[in-house]
Design a protein around this nucleic acid. Structure first.
Ligand SMILES: [Mn+2]
Ligand SMILES: [Mn+2]
Ligand SMILES: [Zn+2]
Ligand SMILES: [Zn+2]
Lengths: 146, 146
DNA sequence: AATAGTTTTGCAACACTGTTGCTTTTTCTT
DNA sequence: AAGAAAAAGCAACAGTGTTGCAAAACTATT
C-alpha cells in the first residue's frame, strides 16, 4: 500500500537522508517532508501538530536534534524565546553550519523566513570586543502579507 | 535599624520606583539594585541566586514583568533561548521601549551586554518585506575577557 | 500613630517544554 | 531470512513559567 500512495517527493527525502548517513525511518521522512513542503521555519509544536498523533514527542525532539547535528536544518533565534528550525540551503555539513543570512519574522502571519540572499551586515564594535558570529532577526510584514 | 545600615544607593532605587509609580517593596528594591550594581544582563535564574532564598520565584517573575511594562528594563533575545533582562538607558516609558542598540554575548564569561553606542544597522530587505524592528545579537569575546 | 483601602507577596497547583534511561520495534547488513 | 545496530516509544523526571487565592505589606488618610 505504501508504494501505491507514494508521491514523487519521497525519493528526494530518502536520498537526502541517505546522503547524510541516516537510516530512513517513517518519522524522519515525515518531518523532513514537512520542511520541504513549505517555505518558512517550523517549531517543535508545529511539527507535532502537522505530524498528527503519529509520533512520540521524544522522537520529534531527537529527530530535530539529529538533523541539526547533520547540518540539514538550523535553529533560528527568536525574540519570543521559542525555538524554530529551517532547512539549511547553504553548504552546511556535520558539525559545521554556515548560515550567514538574516531571519525575518512576520508580525501578521507569524511565520519565520530565512532571507538567504540578505547577508548579515558587518558591525563596528567598540574597542576590545571581537565578534565570532552575528545574528540578525528582523520583525515586520512579509511579502505574502503586504 | 534600617536607617543605620542604609547606604546611599537605596535613595536611587527608591526614587526610581516612585518615579514609575510603583510601590516600594523589599523585592523590587533588591532586584532593581542587582541591575544597578553590575553592567551586564541578568536572567531570572541569576536573580533568584543573587537574591538568596529571600523571594518567591513567582515574585521575581512578576517583578521582572512589571519592570518591563514600566520601561525600566528590557528583554534581550538570545540564541540559546534563555530570557535575559537589562536596564533601559534610553528614554523608555510605560508601554514604549526605544532600545535601538545591539547586544553582545561573550563566549568566555557568558555575560550579555547592551552596546548602547552601537546602533542597529539598516538592513536592505527583498522587495515586499517591510521592517518594524531589527534585533542584532553579536557573539564573541568581550572587553573584559580579551 | 492607627485605620482602611489597595497592592503585592507567598503558596499551591498546574501546564508546557525538554531530557534521560530503558525496553521494544524497526532498519540495515550479510 | 537472521543477526546486529539504530531508532522509536514509554515512563518518569527536571526546569520554567503561569494562575488563583489568601495572607502580608504598603500607601494614603485621618
Ligand atoms: Mn535560516
Ligand atoms: Mn539592551
Ligand atoms: Zn506574513
Ligand atoms: Zn567576557
Amino acid at each position: 500500500m505504501h508504494k501505491q500512495t507514494t508521491h514523487h517527493h519521497i525519493h528526494t527525502v530518502d536520498s537526502l537522508l541517505k546522503k547524510n548517513q541516516l537510516s530512513v525511518t517513517a518519522g524522519r521522512k515525515k518531518i523532513l517532508q514537512l520542511f520541504l513542503d513549505q517555505p518558512g521555519a517550523l517549531s517543535h509544536g508545529d511539527i507535532e501538530k502537522s505530524a498528527g498523533e503519529k509520533f512520540d514527542r521524544v522522537t520529534v525532539y531527537r529527530t530535530l536534534q539529529t538533523f541539526v547535528d547533520k547540518g540539514i536544518i538550523h535553529t533560528i533565534p527568536t525574540a519570543d524565546n521559542s525555538v524554530r528550525y529551517a532547512l539549511c540551503k547553504d553548504d552546511c555539513s556535520e558539525g559545521h553550519h554556515h548560515d550567514h543570512h538574516i531571519h525575518f519574522v512576520c508580525n501578521h502571519c507569524h511565520q519565520t523566513f530565512c532571507l538567504d540572499d540578505v547577508v548579515t551586515p558587518a558591525i563596528k564594535l567598540p574597542r576590545g570586543y571581537s565578534a565570532d558570529q552575528v545574528e540578525v532577526v528582523v520583525e515586520g510584514i512579509c511579502r505574502n502579507c503586504s
